[in-house]
Write a protein that binds this DNA or RNA. Structure first.
Lengths: 182, 182
DNA sequence: CCCCGCTGTTCAGTATTCTCATCACCCCGG
DNA sequence: CCGGGGTGATGAGAATACTGAACAGCGGGG
């Protein structure tokens, strides 16, 4: 249960609004608002969006504020990094998964022999990395290069790009992407 | 219906995950994921949070990305500014309510005779403003000053502060607060 | 004192989300 | 040709979000 309730109540009271008044403006019933604020209910994204709009806020700044706490810890053991890829062909293991307000995705990437990514045309982000093992052919906007241990890359994620393991064994990359919506 | 579905699907596919695999990791059923991605269902905040965690993202960056579009328009007529206060005693009228990724709250504030705010101890933000009509006594950290037309203020919102209309008539302030979670 | 208007909470009923099982499709191997 | 293992979509039922109508408490005025 994400702790949106307390934050919402503070926001509403700061506006000097009662539950009924906010209900009227947002189109959400005052009883629902009561339940949400006391965290007895987790609102749907639609409902929360309606309430936030009536309060003059946006999802991103509401949650930015909510998640602005300090990280629980600074260190992560190799084996506890959270797998966010498929692990069999290409593994992406995430650093700082419980860092509430992280602004980048720091990844330990591991490519099985022959593994390659789709051609990705992603969004407004930047990514960089260093090959730490094996050999990876990186293609950005049609231009390819084979990177080996110590070689690196840095490009705008909006350019079409892909990765291919060209080493007979396993290849590894340490990379970072920002913002973390990779 | 906030358009989270398409963004979620793109994110999942970028990770090379099937719906079942993501369901396994997030604890949300694959059928729910299917419905959410096709926008036939608005997930609860809890459910969305579980999915985002499994994908290695946070609420704030997910929505920051979602709301990163351009504003629909640059101009707002005085009478269309959205009221986010109570209008009777103190009115807060918002500029740019449909600006998807606004990073500040620009307000036209209007104080009825005798109106005053509670003592507010808010959060990590900065606010500034200029009095455009009447006279307002602003108190920050115990220090008070009466500001008249053209006078201004700028302080850290974490300091306890309050506003009081000391003019016999209506007073007005144009203010800005950042971030917009006022 | 009662009554009004305000506050937020609670409860019964309805609508929606969500789960689990099934279904349909596609590709690969035999 | 028929499995097997993968994909995502669907449908019935259980769980939960949500509504609208009470209810209880508080402060002010007659």
């Amino acid at each position: 249960m994400a702790m949106v309730g307390a934050k919402l109540r503070a926001l509403r009271q700061r506006r000097g609004l009662g539950m009924r008044e906010l209900a009227l403006r947002s189109g959400v019933s005052h009883s629902a608002i009561s339940l949400i604020e006391r965290e007895r209910m987790s609102p749907s994204v639609d409902t929360l969006g309606a309430i936030l709009a009536a309060l003059g806020t946006t999802f991103s700044s509401f949650f930015a504020d909510l998640e602005s706490g300090l990280p629980s810890r600074p260190f992560y053991k190799a084996e506890e990094l959270a797998e966010i890829g498929r692990a069999d062909r290409i593994s992406y293991r995430l650093v700082g998964m419980d860092y509430p307000n992280r602004r980048m995705l720091m990844l330990a990437e591991r490519y099985a022999p022959g593994a390659e990514t789709e051609l990705m045309i992603t969004h407004n982000a930047e990514e960089a990395g260093i090959v730490t093992r094996g050999a990876v052919e990186v293609t950005v906007e049609g231009r390819s290069q084979v990177l080996r241990q110590g070689d690196a890359y840095y490009f705008d994620s909006r350019l079409p790009h892909s990765f291919r393991n060209v080493d007979p064994g396993v290849s590894e990359i340490v990379s970072a992407i920002t913002p973390p919506t990779y």
